[in-house]
Design a binder for these strands. Structure first.
Lengths: 370, 370
DNA sequence: CGCTAACTTGTGATCGGTAACAACTGGGCT
DNA sequence: AGCCCAGTTGTTACCGATCACAAGTTAGCG
């Protein structure tokens, strides 16, 4: 019905736009061109900051654009240039603090770089749903894909994105070398946490782990284990859990019953929260009886009871860096060098850790005060 | 049948469509048409599930699409149909639990409805930046805009989105009638929380508020105040704060010094966490000495010390409902009826509230136990 | 047998931009 | 003057889909 542009109204009939600044359907480049008395191509040149446009002409065009409240149609531009100016993010549908922070870090950095962001979230990290999400993004003609990719299935799915499409995985582990990733050095973080408690005089450190199928969780286990090993400390058994406070609570109850446990490294802050509660309910005092360290440094961790010593991750920076890697690829024409950026975490010492009390074992050894 | 297609088979045959599944540049409709021996229009019909296509033809086309790994180009489709199949979300760049959850609720619902989502996040909720975000989304030819809009500046900015574009604000308050909103009944939630503690025998309830310029925070204050008023209880003064645990901690320290404080309603769970810590440090026991209620019911609240009684908001549902409202508008051709959906919150009673201890104050009336 | 109706399929125009090329200007230089 | 080149502008083709319309087929029916 509305496809009726006044085709007959060619040439000089341009008088029509006399006093109607508001087009019913939004104005297009030709409208601007007509009002400014130039060709549509000149308008395009102004828009794209082509150098060879006379100052005076540019001014007239800009004025016309203003008057008509012109907005360029990105679909048309995308169609012809094959560049959408859009990046896709595959995100896990979760409110885990980390992924959510990264999303905003990415969006922010993308906007600064002049890109739009469309998200395709997946409810589970199975290969199938991830591939589907990637597919949806491809249809959108995204120029690159950032996957908030804590699990190998995701980076694997990334491998088969069409060639020429940039991609990067952020967060998670690095089982695969085919796709560049940006992540935090989880093992180093775990080392920091474990060594901290060892230095405090604890004879060993227990660990409450995250899900076994998350490389992030595995790397933390690894860092913890190797630190204990290097220090000649015994390595207690670990059982995988989930990332939730509930999981921490459940495993915490078990640990709380064991009098030999004096130091616990938790795979994230939420787990730590659950552990803290379990210890409290069992009558153990933190940090007097047991020291606890978390991982992530969510904004609330400083207000736990007691304030949590934890390993700080800079999620926003993670987002920014992943974007930088993506843009590099874009600049290099879709080449996908297997970069692996590794960010160093940082230990934030608060009140949930303290020096081990001396000699704990045997018939109630004399507990030193401090 | 195929006799009439020699034109396509000219010198261009270098295209290599023999059996190569992976075209260098991706295949387009014409490639599929050629392989299936039909016209591009027929391919389009199959794609759009037009009824009048012979079974056999459809099969051939589908096969060809499969073989070429064809993906329709949405930019082209958007250009001609003026429908992008994309919804825009204006989100606050924050990791507050609420906004993040809503985003995923929206994305999930949108995907189910066959829409894509592109986000434009803003760092602050000033009018300027919101208008800019809306503008960016318009360029993208989004069909509708959902604003995670806790502040009036946002809904106001929404008023001036181009006509014909659907829009809805989700979360936040409702100062404005011009734009439909979906939100939770904050006042009712506050009432639930306050009444709960009143019923427990507390002579009054103190409140630690959120930011003064967030309608959500104001409505909670209002609900709290009116409940006290209706019960004839004194209304303690309130001071605005932020949504953070730190803010709760600071105000909590003040309240902890006041022996008359036995019940505190916090504007959200994070504030409650800070209050809990302040009370703890001041030697007050929760809920023995002081009862505390939060708002939001974040996943961790059940593991605070003690587990927090709080007002539950269903953020995912909020996201879904807002999408439903948006789709309604779309169906009705861009009409924007000022719908205002109000969701009822729910009180989740855990361990941070208990009956008031009797006679605390000199000549105060005897508080009934229970 | 001829005519209309329903079903299939193809042709050409079109959406709103950008790219390539052509045309026209006006110096500067030989 | 004549030539060339850089600066400026317009013309036309094209990106890849959908839509409107037309054409060819098959079937139904008086």
């Amino acid at each position: 019905m509305s496809g009726k542009r006044p085709a007959a109204d060619d040439g000089q009939a341009a008088r029509t736009e006399g006093a109607a600044p508001a087009q019913p359907r939004g104005s297009v480049m030709r409208d601007v061109a007509r009002l400014a008395g130039v060709s549509h191509q000149t308008v395009s040149r102004v828009l794209n900051e082509h150098p060879n446009v006379r100052q005076e002409t540019r001014r007239r065009v800009l004025e016309a654009m203003q008057a008509l409240n012109y907005r360029r149609n990105l679909a048309a531009r995308t169609l012809v240039t094959r560049r959408s100016g859009t990046l896709g993010v595959v995100g896990l549908e979760t409110t885990l603090f980390g992924p959510a922070s990264m999303l905003y870090g990415i969006e922010d950095a993308a906007r600064t770089a002049g890109y739009f962001v469309t998200v395709a979230s997946v409810r589970t990290l199975e290969r199938r749903s991830v591939v589907e999400a990637v597919d949806r993004l491809c249809q959108q003609s995204v120029e690159g894909i950032i996957a908030i990719a804590p699990k190998p299935a995701v980076t694997n799915a990334l491998v088969q994105v069409p060639p020429g499409l940039a991609s990067v995985g952020v967060g998670g582990g690095a089982d695969d070398d085919a796709v560049p990733t940006v992540r935090i050095d989880n093992a180093a973080g775990a080392r920091l946490a474990t060594q901290h408690m060892l230095d405090l005089g604890h004879s060993t450190v227990h660990h409450v782990a995250g899900p076994a199928d998350w490389p992030e969780a595995r790397e933390r286990v690894e860092g913890w284990r190797s630190t204990l090993y290097a220090a000649g400390a015994p390595v207690p058994p670990v059982e995988p859990g989930s990332w939730s406070a509930q999981s921490g609570y459940e495993q915490g109850q078990v640990l709380a019953r064991d009098p030999s446990v004096t130091a616990i490294f938790c795979a994230n802050d939420q787990i730590a929260l659950g552990v803290l509660r379990a210890l409290h309910e069992a009558g153990k005092r933190v940090p007097r009886d047991v020291s606890v360290v978390g991982f992530d440094d969510m904004p609330d961790s400083g207000y736990f009871l007691p304030p949590l010593t934890t390993v700080h991750q800079d999620f926003a920076e993670l987002g920014r860096r992943s974007l930088a890697v993506l843009l590099d690829q874009l600049k290099q024409g879709g080449e996908r060098p297997p970069d692996h950026v590794l960010l160093a975490p940082e230990l934030v010492v608060r009140a949930s850790t303290a020096a081990a009390r001396r000699a704990r074992r045997g018939p109630a050894g004399p507990a030193a005060i401090r």
